[in-house]
Each structure stands twice: as C-alpha cells, then as structure tokens.
Design a protein around this nucleic acid. Structure first.
Lengths: 232, 232
DNA sequence: TCAAAAGTGTTCAAGATACACCCATGA
DNA sequence: TCATGGGTGTATCTTGAACACTTTTGA
C-alpha cells in the first residue's frame, strides 16, 4: 500500500488543470494569444491555452509543457496568477484550474506559427467571449500586469531583444491605457540605468530612424531584486 | 456515465489541500498563528492550518471551513496567495496545496481559545521550523502583506474596530520592520480621510490617553477600489 | 513634580509633471 | 522641400523626509 493511500485515501481527488494567459505586444497594442479549444466539451470555442496536470509533474512544469505543446513557445516569462476552484466552473466536471500568465514578444510567435498552431493574437479590446471563467482570468491577469509593470520594469519581457524608445513607450501606454510624455518617459527610463544604447537605428517606422536599445541583464536583475518602484 | 468520466477520465486526479497563513498583531509585534499538526504524517510538528478540499466545495469555501474548524474563526479577511504543486512537497503522497493568507485582530483569538484549539501565536522572529514547504508559504505571505500594505490601507484588518494612532503606527512599523516618524505618519493617514476620530480615549498605555479612531467603511471601500497608493 | 506617552508644524530636497521646438531623412 | 516621426531641456509643483517641543495625567 502506498504512503498516499495509507494517509490520505479517505479524501477526494480532483482533476487539476493549468490555463495560461499569454500577453503579447504588437503594433502599439497589447494582445492576447488564444485558440479554439481542441477537445470536448466546448470544442471549437475560444479559450486560453490549457490542459491537465499529469502525474509526477509539478504545476509549473505542466504550465510550461502545455504552453510548449500548444504553441511551440519555450523559455517564456511565466508566473502563477491565481487558482480557480468554483465547483461548477467547468460544466463537464469538477476541475480545479491554476491560471498562469505569460509575457512574450509577439514577434516570437508570428502569423505563420499562429496558423500552424491554430492560435490567434487578439487585441484586448476585441476579445471574443472565452469559455468558462477564462475572461475573468484575463481580467485578473491584466490587473496583475499593470501592477507588476508599476513595481518592476517587467514590460521588457514583451519586447524583442532590441527595441526603440518609441516602442517601449507605446508598450507602457498600452499597459496603462494612457498617454505618456515623451521627454518624461525617456528621462525616467534612462534614469533606471538598465538600457544599453546601440549604434544601430530602426528605420521601419520613420525616415529619421530611432536608436535601438538593449537592456542590461545584470543591472536589470539587480533592479528587480531591489524592488525598484516604477511609476508613470 | 457522468459527464466528467465521459470527457476527462483519461486524466489523473490529485488530492488538493488548502493551507492558511494567519497573521495577527499584538503587543507591537506581527504574529503568526500555528498549531501542531493533528494527523499523520508529521503529526505533532508545527504547521499552518490546513486540510483537504472536499467534493462539492470550492477552494475558497474549503479555506474558510478549515479555518473555522481549526480555530473557530469566522468572517475573516482571507485571500488566495499561491498554489504549491511540487511533486515531492508532501512526503506522504502527491498533494497540491493552495495557500491562503488571512488577517485577524489578534484579540479575536485569545489565550483561552488558543489552548482550546491547540493553536499558538508566534512572533515572526521566533518561528519554529514548519513542516514541508510551510515556511516558504509564510515568507511569501509576508512579502504579499508588505506589498499590499503599501498599496491599500489593508493594515486595518489586523486591528480591533477601535484603535489609536500609536497602535496603528506600531502595526505599520511591524509590517515594514522600520521605524516611522509620528508626525509624518499621522499626516499621511489622516490625509487618506478614512478615519473617524472618536471622543473616547484609550488609557491602557499612557496616562494621557490616546484618542480612539474607527475607520469609515464606505470611504475605505472607495479608496481600495480606486487603487490608492500608500507609501511610507 | 515628574515620568511617560500623546500630540502638533515647518523647512528642505527630490521627484513628478507640464510644456515647445529643432533634427534627420526619404519621398 | 516638406511631411513624418525622433530627439532634447527647463521651470514649477507636489510629495516625502527630517526634525523638537508642548501637553496631559496618574503616581
């Protein structure tokens, strides 16, 4: 008889799932990656990326595995958000779900891969109804993202390795749903002293071109650990 | 055949537990309510208040039930903290635990009730080793409490209905582990405009006596919803 | 009358906000 | 040459931080 049986067998067990809220940023807009659910019930309806936790697999591992299986994405910024345990949340049976939220540079998941995986980027304002309590999860994830962005320079996770100031600003504007002043924004960001200015320029969005920046991993880590507070 | 069986039966199921980190505040110190675990394995060792989720019971309901069964406490400020899903976290078998943290005025749980329930208040600095990953949970809960206290006037949950300024200040000093300036503290708190000054004084800790305050539920709610930022 | 805690204002520094013009470039 | 987006500095205001003395009262 296993230890578990010996001690805990009188208690019930539950299906445990993981659902991931995947935020991306593209064309000045904050987006969510969703797909049409591939299994019953509610097959074909819009859903977050989710799946069941397997035996011998931690929650974090399940979240990462499922993300990889459904999107091919790997090494993504991911963090637990909240558990959802209402009895009737899944009409097909009792399932306790642990929601994660993930941030990826939208370019790492292009149109091509999108269609390959049946996934779509949707602007936060154009979100279709999602199954079960997934919309709730998104809302909560967004609140968390806003708070996090205010206390840590987390926004960088959403950008490609090299980015321009106007891009970074547009991202923060998308997160906060507010316009920011160019000069003040630059001042603040540069004061953080985590950016490395490159010689190259990005000319895709203007004739003049905007300087590219990369951010300094080491300084960035220190900043995060020190609990830097970043207010806009 | 049930719907659940029909759809999800190929997936494994897990024991799901709930553990509560209960903070209290007394004698100028932030405290944690713990007890000696009442069942095997690790029976008799120091532990948070936990138990298994039952069929037909939501996570929140389980957290509240367990708290009530083990301490007699009811209508407590409680909030989910984080899930713990490492495979080997419980040596007696796979258990996924959802940690909650709770804030109560320590006076609501006195010496008398303590011994009745085999529970003890322990100062955060004198914490004994706790079973499994419970110490980790406490650490995380404390970090959350600090952050929350900075963004919402949450500290009030830890005080009795009527309290004095010096008490409130001592609480914040305990949470932040830092000394605060009396004058600045009062200024800030009063600027929030959520306190009602009473005519009565509390003379238990000085000859002069300190005015009692109550806080204004309505204004308080508004403040919380508005995402007030409270920095010390 | 004195010990012990409660209560009260002002000054200074830093950080946030508001604001307008020139620059580089390709079409 | 001009339209478009990129880049820059300063003045003002707000907010947080530092700081010391008077008041009340019971023993």
């Amino acid at each position: 008889m296993s230890k578990e049986k010996q001690y805990y067998s009188e208690h019930p067990t539950f299906h445990v799932a993981v659902d991931s809220i995947i935020f991306g940023f593209d064309q000045g807009e904050l987006k969510l990656l969703i797909h049409k659910r591939q299994f019953e019930p509610a097959k074909g309806e819009w859903s977050l990326f989710g799946g069941f936790v397997q035996k011998g697999e931690s929650l974090d591992a399940a979240a990462n595995r499922i993300l990889f299986e459904l999107t091919g994405l790997d090494k993504v910024y991911m963090e637990e958000l909240q558990s959802y345990g209402e009895v009737e949340r899944d009409p097909a049976g009792r399932v306790i779900s642990v929601a994660y939220y993930a941030l990826i540079p939208a370019k790492e998941f292009t149109e091509a891969t999108s269609s390959q995986y049946g996934a779509t980027w949707v602007g936060l304002k154009d979100l279709p109804p999602l199954i079960m309590d997934h919309s709730q999860m998104v809302e909560k994830g967004l609140r968390r993202l806003k708070r996090r962005a205010a206390s840590q320079p987390i926004g960088f996770e959403l950008l490609p390795r090299e980015f321009t100031m106007p891009q970074l600003q547009a991202l923060y504007e998308a997160i906060y749903q507010a316009e920011l002043d160019k000069r003040n924004f630059r001042k603040k960001i540069l004061a953080m002293d985590v950016l490395i200015k490159l010689d190259a320029k990005d000319k895709t969005s203007s004739r003049k071109g905007a300087f590219l920046y990369r951010f300094d991993q080491k300084k960035y880590r220190k900043l995060v650990e020190g609990g830097y507070n970043f207010t806009m």
